[in-house]
């Protein structure tokens, strides 16, 4: 008896029909944090394994986009950039934009692309989208180095104090991308055309987000843009890092509330799908 007590770990699994999100889910995710690490590690490793410049892609992509945008929008079209060198202006926007769009699209395909694992092994499914976002976050950090280089190049003094707001901006972006991504991931399981529509949708979204132009360009209609949470994030990022404008805290808080609601909706749908997912793929 005593022997068996020590032999058997005190872990008890009870399997019952249905379950909705509870605090235990968070505890469980914490227990599986190593797996979260391994999924992220796998994604990064695989992504950069067979490329020449390896992790340099994380810089190359936004950098080239920045160059093209600077030439066409900055130099030729003379898009205003709030009196900041256009390359820095657009790169700041791109940095956050790519984090958001990358996270949104990888989260939304996460259930489908990992279906072979999901149908064979149990782990909290939320680990998958979370690791997808962490992967994007690593890319964000790498690409962020380039922003510092750019600032030096243009002899632009960054506002160091502005860095303090960075976590808040990342949280908002994270919630927006994951919340939306979880929702899309759930529909994607049932209706597979989501993956065809999404790239198009994301591209459209880029144009209604002040990435390549300042939100001031919309004049009195700029509040329309504020419906998009990424508007607030990118505006605040420029305000904080480049000192273009004072940070609009009200706008940021509205964004935060909006994305939190989005996140709750996303998790709700995700948990609902999670239950029967293994049965339908």
């Amino acid at each position: 008896m005593v022997k068996s007590e020590t032999h058997m770990s005190d872990q008890v699994t009870v399997i019952r029909p249905k379950k909705m999100f509870s605090l235990d889910d968070i505890k469980e995710i914490w227990r599986f944090k190593e797996l979260l690490f391994f999924f992220t590690w796998r994604d990064l490793k695989v992504r950069y394994k067979q490329t020449i410049v390896g992790v340099g892609w994380a810089i190359f992509q936004p950098f080239m986009t920045m160059v093209v945008f600077s030439v066409f929008f900055g130099n030729l079209l003379k898009v205003p950039s709030d009196n900041i060198p256009y390359p820095i202006f657009v790169y700041t926007g791109l940095l956050f934009w790519q984090f958001f769009s990358g996270a949104l699209s990888s989260t939304s395909s996460t259930l489908i692309s990992n279906q072979s694992i999901i149908t064979k092994v149990y782990f909290p499914r939320l680990i998958l989208p979370l690791s997808a976002v962490v992967t994007e976050l690593v890319d964000f950090a790498v690409a962020g180095v380039m922003l510092i280089v750019l600032m030096f190049y243009f002899h632009y003094t960054p506002h160091i104090a502005g860095l303090l707001i960075l976590p808040l901006l990342l949280i908002i972006t994270f919630l927006a991308a994951v919340g939306g991504g979880l929702f899309l991931a759930s529909i994607n399981v049932k209706y597979r055309d989501v993956r065809y529509v999404l790239p198009y949708f994301i591209q459209m979204l880029l144009f209604i987000t002040p990435v390549i132009y300042p939100s001031s360009i919309a004049g009195k209609w700029s509040w329309v843009l504020a419906v998009n949470p990424m508007t607030g994030v990118i505006k605040a990022a420029r305000g904080a890092l480049l000192g273009t404008e004072p940070i609009n805290w009200t706008l940021l808080m509205i964004s935060l509330v909006a994305v939190s609601v989005l996140m709750i909706i996303g998790v709700y749908f995700f948990k609902k799908t999670e239950r029967y997912f293994a049965d339908i793929v």
Binding site: V12, V14, P17, V121, Y276
Partner: peptide, 17 residues
């Protein structure tokens, strides 16, 4: 029993890892 799909009714208790 592997928690991949939930049962419709009933329950299963597994004591241990």
């Amino acid at each position: 029993l592997s928690k991949i799909t939930p049962p419709t009714t009933g329950e299963a208790i597994l004591r241990g890892k």
